[in-house]
């Protein structure tokens, strides 16, 4: 339970970090909050020759909110995402997701970029990013590129990132004031990985019916997925208890979780139904006009 030997680098700014990544390539691992890489190194599942510590890159710890976009730096800690008043206003769905990550002490260190690059299939940020059509900003010494989250997260712990590249920020479209949202998850223990998690947003048309549903489900496959069929079929349905039950059932019918000895596929599918219903209910309640 002790990490293997490595050479330690502590760049003082992003350009220096990118220079190191360009030189060291596949022999290096960038270290952000260390709340996933640390355990992997302690268990020797990861044995990088070089560790490039990103914790001094304070230029990557930021929250910028404009009329349309919430852009968050890759080194922003979960605790800040969970408690930042601007994020709470512009993107409360993300704040709620961040509040559910690990534990209080873990959230003080873990980062947005680190979690997204680690790409655990049950992780919160990838689910929210894919559900909200977020974009991932990637830098290297060579170039800057912007990749839709849905393309960035490729498979279990596999993302579209070259060895010399670093994620520097994530851009989310902010929620409209009239947009309802829900984030719900089920895990066996507090702070543990979700067996199933659901993120969604919806609007109501002039007659109060559902429009523009975006529905993402995590924990049921190698990457979080959008349920396009349910999103389409929800359009124009009355926002009532019956519709919620139908859509939740449909969500469960549209996932194909793998059977595993501890979590049978059928159990996970039933969880999708229950958790989706909870998230839909929360979102619909948020769109009930108080006037």
């Amino acid at each position: 339970m002790k990490p293997a030997s490595f050479t330690y680098h502590r760049p003082g700014c992003l350009d220096d970090a990118l220079g190191l990544m360009a030189t060291l390539g596949v022999t290096a691992k960038p270290l952000a909050g260390g709340q996933s890489l640390g355990p992997m190194m302690n268990m020797r599942l990861a044995r990088p020759e070089h560790v490039v510590d990103l914790n001094d890159l304070l230029e990557l710890d930021f929250v910028r909110v404009t009329d349309a976009v919430v852009e968050i730096g890759a080194l922003t800690r979960h605790h800040r995402v969970a408690t930042d008043p601007e994020i709470a206003r512009a993107l409360p769905l993300l704040a709620k997701a961040a509040q559910s990550i690990g534990h209080y002490a873990i959230r003080q260190r873990g980062t947005l970029g680190g979690s997204l690059v680690h790409a655990d299939p049950a992780a919160q940020y990838a689910l929210v990013a894919i559900t909200l059509d977020a974009e991932v900003v990637i830098r290297s010494a060579r170039t800057t590129r912007v990749v839709p989250a849905v393309d960035f997260v490729q498979s279990i712990m596999t993302v579209d990132l070259a060895p010399d590249e670093l994620v520097t920020a994530v851009r989310f479209r902010r929620l409209a004031p009239a947009e309802g949202w829900g984030f719900e998850m089920f895990s066996r223990r507090h702070g543990d990985f979700a067996l199933v998690s659901v993120a969604l947003t919806l609007r109501r048309d002039g007659h109060g019916a559902i429009s523009n549903l975006r529905l993402g489900v995590g924990g049921v496959g190698p990457v979080p997925e959008r349920l396009a069929v349910v999103e389409r079929d929800a359009c124009r349905l009355a926002a009532d208890v019956g519709t919620i039950a139908v859509l939740a059932r449909q969500a469960a019918d549209n996932v194909t979780p793998e059977d595993d000895p501890q979590v049978p596929a059928n159990y996970r599918r039933e969880l999708v139904e229950a958790v989706t219903a909870r998230a839909l209910t929360a979102a619909v309640l948020k769109t009930e006009s108080p006037s």
Binding site: Y8, G34, Q35, G38, P39, N42, H79, Y104, A105, R109
Partner: peptide
């Protein structure tokens, strides 16, 4: 801020 000393070098 609280942090795990086992996940920090």
């Amino acid at each position: 801020a609280p942090a795990r000393a086992c996940l920090t070098y």
